[in-house]
Amino acid sequence: MFDVAVFGSLFLTLFVIMDPPGVTPIFLGLTAGRPTAVQKRMALQAVLVAGGVIALFGLTGQHILDYLHISVPALMIAGGVLLLLVALDLLTGKTDEPQQTKDVNVALVPLGMPLLAGPGAIVSVILAVEKAGDVGAQVGVWTAILAIHVVIWLVMRNSLLVVRLIKEGGVVLVTRLSGMLLAAIAVQQIINGVTQVVQGS
Protein backbone atom coordinates (compact mmCIF):
# COMPACT_ATOMS: atom_id res chain seq x y z
CA MET A 1 0.00 0.00 0.00
CA PHE A 2 3.03 2.31 -0.07
CA ASP A 3 5.44 2.66 -3.00
CA VAL A 4 8.80 3.70 -1.53
CA ALA A 5 10.37 4.23 -4.97
CA VAL A 6 7.65 6.67 -6.02
CA PHE A 7 7.90 8.48 -2.69
CA GLY A 8 11.69 8.82 -2.90
CA SER A 9 11.68 9.93 -6.52
CA LEU A 10 9.06 12.65 -6.09
CA PHE A 11 10.42 13.82 -2.73
CA LEU A 12 13.92 14.30 -4.16
CA THR A 13 12.51 16.00 -7.25
CA LEU A 14 10.46 18.45 -5.17
CA PHE A 15 13.37 19.02 -2.77
CA VAL A 16 15.60 20.09 -5.65
CA ILE A 17 12.91 22.24 -7.30
CA MET A 18 11.49 23.88 -4.15
CA ASP A 19 14.98 24.11 -2.58
CA PRO A 20 14.28 24.59 1.17
CA PRO A 21 17.83 25.83 1.96
CA GLY A 22 17.69 28.29 -0.93
CA VAL A 23 14.32 29.64 0.20
CA THR A 24 15.73 30.49 3.65
CA PRO A 25 17.49 33.80 2.79
CA ILE A 26 14.53 34.90 0.69
CA PHE A 27 12.14 34.12 3.55
CA LEU A 28 14.34 36.07 5.97
CA GLY A 29 14.53 39.00 3.58
CA LEU A 30 10.79 39.13 2.96
CA THR A 31 9.88 38.86 6.66
CA ALA A 32 12.60 41.12 8.06
CA GLY A 33 11.50 43.55 10.78
CA ARG A 34 8.41 41.63 11.82
CA PRO A 35 7.86 40.09 15.27
CA THR A 36 8.96 36.47 15.61
CA ALA A 37 5.38 35.31 16.15
CA VAL A 38 4.32 36.96 12.89
CA GLN A 39 7.26 35.42 11.03
CA LYS A 40 6.38 31.95 12.34
CA ARG A 41 2.76 32.45 11.30
CA MET A 42 3.84 33.59 7.84
CA ALA A 43 6.07 30.52 7.46
CA LEU A 44 3.09 28.29 8.24
CA GLN A 45 0.79 30.28 5.95
CA ALA A 46 3.25 30.08 3.07
CA VAL A 47 3.59 26.31 3.43
CA LEU A 48 -0.18 25.83 3.68
CA VAL A 49 -0.74 27.96 0.58
CA ALA A 50 1.95 26.11 -1.36
CA GLY A 51 0.57 22.75 -0.23
CA GLY A 52 -2.96 23.76 -1.15
CA VAL A 53 -1.96 24.98 -4.61
CA ILE A 54 0.12 21.88 -5.35
CA ALA A 55 -2.62 19.57 -4.06
CA LEU A 56 -5.19 21.36 -6.22
CA PHE A 57 -3.06 21.02 -9.32
CA GLY A 58 -2.21 17.44 -8.42
CA LEU A 59 -5.91 16.60 -8.41
CA THR A 60 -7.17 18.77 -11.27
CA GLY A 61 -4.11 20.53 -12.71
CA GLN A 62 -4.07 19.21 -16.25
CA HIS A 63 -7.82 19.82 -16.60
CA ILE A 64 -7.41 23.41 -15.35
CA LEU A 65 -4.57 24.17 -17.76
CA ASP A 66 -6.41 22.57 -20.69
CA TYR A 67 -9.69 24.36 -19.89
CA LEU A 68 -7.99 27.77 -19.69
CA HIS A 69 -5.74 26.96 -22.68
CA ILE A 70 -2.64 27.75 -20.60
CA SER A 71 0.64 26.15 -21.58
CA VAL A 72 3.36 25.24 -19.10
CA PRO A 73 5.79 27.79 -20.65
CA ALA A 74 3.20 30.53 -20.19
CA LEU A 75 2.85 29.52 -16.54
CA MET A 76 6.64 29.66 -16.14
CA ILE A 77 6.95 33.11 -17.73
CA ALA A 78 4.10 34.56 -15.66
CA GLY A 79 5.60 33.19 -12.45
CA GLY A 80 9.01 34.57 -13.41
CA VAL A 81 7.66 38.06 -14.03
CA LEU A 82 5.85 38.03 -10.68
CA LEU A 83 9.02 36.93 -8.85
CA LEU A 84 11.06 39.59 -10.65
CA LEU A 85 8.74 42.36 -9.43
CA VAL A 86 9.09 41.14 -5.84
CA ALA A 87 12.88 40.87 -6.24
CA LEU A 88 13.09 44.50 -7.39
CA ASP A 89 11.20 45.58 -4.26
CA LEU A 90 13.70 43.71 -2.09
CA LEU A 91 16.67 45.21 -3.92
CA THR A 92 15.36 48.77 -3.67
CA GLY A 93 14.22 48.38 -0.05
CA LYS A 94 10.60 49.43 -0.62
CA THR A 95 8.66 49.42 2.65
CA ASP A 96 5.80 51.77 1.86
CA GLU A 97 3.14 49.04 1.84
CA PRO A 98 0.94 48.78 4.95
CA GLN A 99 2.21 46.18 7.43
CA GLN A 100 -0.85 43.97 7.43
CA THR A 101 -1.11 43.96 3.64
CA LYS A 102 2.56 43.10 3.39
CA ASP A 103 2.08 40.18 5.77
CA VAL A 104 -0.71 38.75 3.65
CA ASN A 105 1.09 39.36 0.35
CA VAL A 106 4.37 37.88 1.50
CA ALA A 107 2.79 34.73 2.89
CA LEU A 108 0.63 34.18 -0.17
CA VAL A 109 2.77 35.84 -2.86
CA PRO A 110 5.62 35.24 -3.51
CA LEU A 111 6.42 32.73 -0.72
CA GLY A 112 3.45 30.40 -1.13
CA MET A 113 3.22 30.90 -4.87
CA PRO A 114 5.14 31.07 -7.16
CA LEU A 115 8.33 30.63 -5.08
CA LEU A 116 7.37 27.35 -3.37
CA ALA A 117 4.46 26.23 -5.53
CA GLY A 118 6.11 27.26 -8.78
CA PRO A 119 5.62 25.88 -12.29
CA GLY A 120 8.35 23.26 -11.82
CA ALA A 121 6.80 21.81 -8.67
CA ILE A 122 3.29 21.96 -10.12
CA VAL A 123 4.24 20.17 -13.34
CA SER A 124 6.24 17.53 -11.42
CA VAL A 125 3.23 16.75 -9.24
CA ILE A 126 0.82 16.66 -12.18
CA LEU A 127 3.06 14.15 -13.98
CA ALA A 128 3.62 12.06 -10.83
CA VAL A 129 -0.13 11.81 -10.16
CA GLU A 130 -0.80 10.80 -13.77
CA LYS A 131 1.92 8.12 -13.70
CA ALA A 132 0.80 6.65 -10.35
CA GLY A 133 -1.24 3.71 -11.53
CA ASP A 134 -2.11 1.92 -8.29
CA VAL A 135 -3.04 2.80 -4.73
CA GLY A 136 0.50 2.27 -3.42
CA ALA A 137 1.93 4.71 -5.94
CA GLN A 138 -0.75 7.28 -5.18
CA VAL A 139 -0.03 6.99 -1.45
CA GLY A 140 3.68 7.45 -2.21
CA VAL A 141 2.98 10.58 -4.25
CA TRP A 142 0.83 12.30 -1.66
CA THR A 143 3.09 11.27 1.22
CA ALA A 144 6.04 12.82 -0.64
CA ILE A 145 4.09 16.06 -1.14
CA LEU A 146 3.22 16.19 2.56
CA ALA A 147 6.79 15.35 3.63
CA ILE A 148 8.46 18.07 1.53
CA HIS A 149 6.11 20.71 2.91
CA VAL A 150 6.86 19.64 6.48
CA VAL A 151 10.58 19.94 5.71
CA ILE A 152 10.14 23.41 4.20
CA TRP A 153 8.14 24.58 7.21
CA LEU A 154 10.77 23.31 9.64
CA VAL A 155 13.59 24.95 7.66
CA MET A 156 11.85 28.34 7.47
CA ARG A 157 10.76 28.24 11.11
CA ASN A 158 14.26 27.39 12.36
CA SER A 159 15.85 29.97 10.05
CA LEU A 160 14.45 32.64 12.37
CA LEU A 161 17.25 31.75 14.78
CA VAL A 162 19.66 33.20 12.21
CA VAL A 163 18.08 36.64 12.60
CA ARG A 164 19.01 36.74 16.27
CA LEU A 165 22.63 36.15 15.37
CA ILE A 166 23.09 38.54 12.43
CA LYS A 167 21.21 41.50 13.97
CA GLU A 168 19.69 44.42 12.00
CA GLY A 169 22.67 45.10 9.73
CA GLY A 170 22.85 41.46 8.76
CA VAL A 171 19.13 41.41 7.99
CA VAL A 172 19.57 44.30 5.53
CA LEU A 173 22.42 42.42 3.87
CA VAL A 174 20.33 39.23 3.68
CA THR A 175 17.44 41.23 2.22
CA ARG A 176 19.58 42.61 -0.61
CA LEU A 177 21.16 39.20 -1.19
CA SER A 178 17.77 37.51 -1.31
CA GLY A 179 16.58 40.13 -3.78
CA MET A 180 19.49 39.36 -6.06
CA LEU A 181 18.94 35.59 -5.76
CA LEU A 182 15.22 35.96 -6.36
CA ALA A 183 15.87 38.13 -9.43
CA ALA A 184 18.20 35.46 -10.82
CA ILE A 185 15.60 32.74 -10.17
CA ALA A 186 12.95 34.87 -11.87
CA VAL A 187 15.06 35.60 -14.95
CA GLN A 188 16.03 31.92 -15.28
CA GLN A 189 12.38 30.92 -15.04
CA ILE A 190 11.45 33.41 -17.78
CA ILE A 191 14.33 32.14 -19.96
CA ASN A 192 13.19 28.53 -19.46
CA GLY A 193 9.64 29.46 -20.44
CA VAL A 194 10.73 31.36 -23.54
CA THR A 195 13.09 28.54 -24.52
CA GLN A 196 10.25 26.01 -24.34
CA VAL A 197 8.05 28.28 -26.48
CA VAL A 198 10.79 28.61 -29.11
CA GLN A 199 11.50 24.87 -29.12
CA GLY A 200 7.81 24.08 -29.40
CA SER A 201 7.22 26.42 -32.32
Rank of each mutant, 00 (worst) to 15 (best):
A46Q: 09
V125G: 02
A128K: 07
V81C: 05
R176E: 02
Q39I: 08
Q188T: 12
H149P: 03
W153S: 00
V16S: 04
T92Q: 09
T60C: 09
G8V: 07
V104D: 01
A128C: 07
W142G: 01
L111P: 01
L83W: 08
A147M: 12
A87M: 08
V104F: 13
P110S: 06
V53Q: 02
I148C: 04
V81N: 03
T101I: 13
V109K: 00
S9V: 08
T24Q: 07
G33D: 10
D19F: 00
T36K: 00
I191V: 15
V194N: 02
Q39G: 14
V109A: 05
P73Q: 09
T36R: 08
T143C: 11
V4E: 12
G93R: 13
I148Q: 03
L173R: 09
V172Q: 11
Q39H: 01
I152S: 03
G52M: 11
L165Y: 13
I64M: 11
I77L: 07
A132K: 03
L14A: 09
M180G: 15
R34F: 11
I145F: 07
P20H: 02
K94M: 11
V174H: 02
L44G: 01
L84E: 09
P35C: 08
Q196E: 14
Q99F: 12
M76I: 02
I145W: 07
P35D: 14
I191N: 00
G118V: 11
T175S: 13
L182P: 04
V123R: 07
G58N: 08
